[in-house]
Design a binder for these strands. Structure first.
Lengths: 239, 239
DNA sequence: AACGCGCTCCAACAAATGTTAATTCCTTGC
DNA sequence: GCAAGGAATTAACATTTGTTGGAGCGCGTT
């Protein structure tokens, strides 16, 4: 049931059975969300943190003029709002980009983990640090990469992250976002998003249809993206 | 000596004297860095985390074509690389943007804190979570705000953060960045950065000369920026 | 089968942003 | 005081990105 979480946390350092049991013990009820539904509302003060068991979700903010920007994409095994455990108030919303199956971790029990299980605490902390590392990579992509490179980088990142939790199929993965939603990831207009996807297709490094992305030339895609997975901390070492 | 750190961590929740002592005990030697010097090198594996006592620093990445993007600005009281305590390998560099006086916290002693001081651990974790929240706000600014609004937002953010650690002077603060460096913050060309600063000046909400920024109309600046400080978690509450 | 709807894709034009190159201003070293 | 070099500023032009409007396509409903 929590296999994705174990895969996700366990990629950075070994997870003991006792720690898995502690995590399982922190979990409470499950819930399903339909595509487009808010999983966590901006401004709310959750008393649970949400683990994605299956589906794709995103953090986002909306400006006064109605434009939206996604600040992260969350895959199975990710806590979408572990940060709310300490930040308390959500300064952004979280929306389901596909049907999402989630499970809620009680903040009281997470607190107990911080009191009694230092190593597991560090792994949870680390999970939020990787979040931050991804954010920094996105900032670089938005500020200094060409749009094609930005998109290529995102494809690389998603592929690697989905592979860790076994949601890839060969060199393909399912990406349920519409081009309008992709535009809210990269910070572009829909029209230009369409151009950029077309450009990446034209180079021949990916095929992209029916919400399925297939990487045709990983080496060249990585080159276009200047993708270096160091920031994902996928090396298993003592933490 | 560590007053800025206490102010920074203490803005979110009360810091006990025992916790202050633990923090002080984790600190080792001090060092000065000249403007432009690297405080932490990309790719390194620090065994210390760096606390800024005085000065301004920034995290950055450089792409193959030589362009640079800052991913954060760090003010006194900030740990510039607390995340390296668990991420282990630096995936970016940290550079001094002004003469910097820093002090190094030993990772071994930080680890001891995580074993023995859960509340202080949560506050250190929180510190990195606020980092993440700032990153998200930057992503939104880069993706969906006008450049003028982005700059206004940055001015608001810096003013508030500097105020917490008592580095403001009335409605003014010292900002030692050249326009080329500012361009690496916003992800613009130098020429356009100059245009945008000019635009903000022209509106009359800030004056900006000799590396000193003065906010002339906070209300209107905040309006232009759509600045909502919630993401900085400045409310003191139990964490 | 007809219709409506959301999504992809495209064209034409408008606006924002980058590039190159010069000019001026200011600080620093001599 | 003067020369040199960095930084700010501006102009002219090139490129990227946004906007508006619409065509085509798949899909579910009537």
């Amino acid at each position: 049931m929590l296999e994705s979480l174990y895969l996700n946390l366990g990629q950075h350092d070994a997870l003991s059975d006792a720690e898995k049991a502690l995590l399982a013990g922190a979990m409470t009820f499950e819930r399903h969300f339909a595509t487009g539904q808010d999983i966590v509302a901006s401004g709310s003060r959750p008393t649970y943190s949400t683990l994605i068991l299956d589906g794709l979700a995103a953090r986002y903010k909306v400006l006064e003029n109605g434009s939206r920007q996604f600040t992260s994409l969350q895959v199975p095994g990710d806590f979408v709002d572990l940060h709310a455990f300490l930040l308390k108030t959500m300064d952004h919303g979280i929306v389901a980009l596909s049907p999402c199956h989630v499970r809620f971790a009680d903040h009281g029990r997470l607190r107990t983990i911080t009191e009694q299980a230092p190593h597991l605490t560090r792994l949870l902390w680390l999970d939020t640090l990787v979040d931050g590392a991804i954010h920094r990579e996105w900032i670089v992509a938005m500020g200094r990469r060409s749009k094609t490179s930005h998109l290529a980088h995102l494809v690389c990142e998603l592929f690697v992250r989905l592979q860790v939790v076994q949601r890839t199929n060969g060199m393909s993965f399912h990406l349920p976002l519409s081009q309008a939603e992709m535009a809210d990831v990269l910070g572009l207009s829909v029209v230009h998003m369409n151009r950029v996807i077309g450009a990446l297709r034209k180079v021949g490094v990916v095929s992209w249809a029916n919400h399925t992305v297939t990487i045709l030339d990983w080496h060249r895609l990585q080159e276009i993206a200047e993708f270096d997975p160091t920031y994902l901390s996928m090396l298993r070492e003592p933490r």
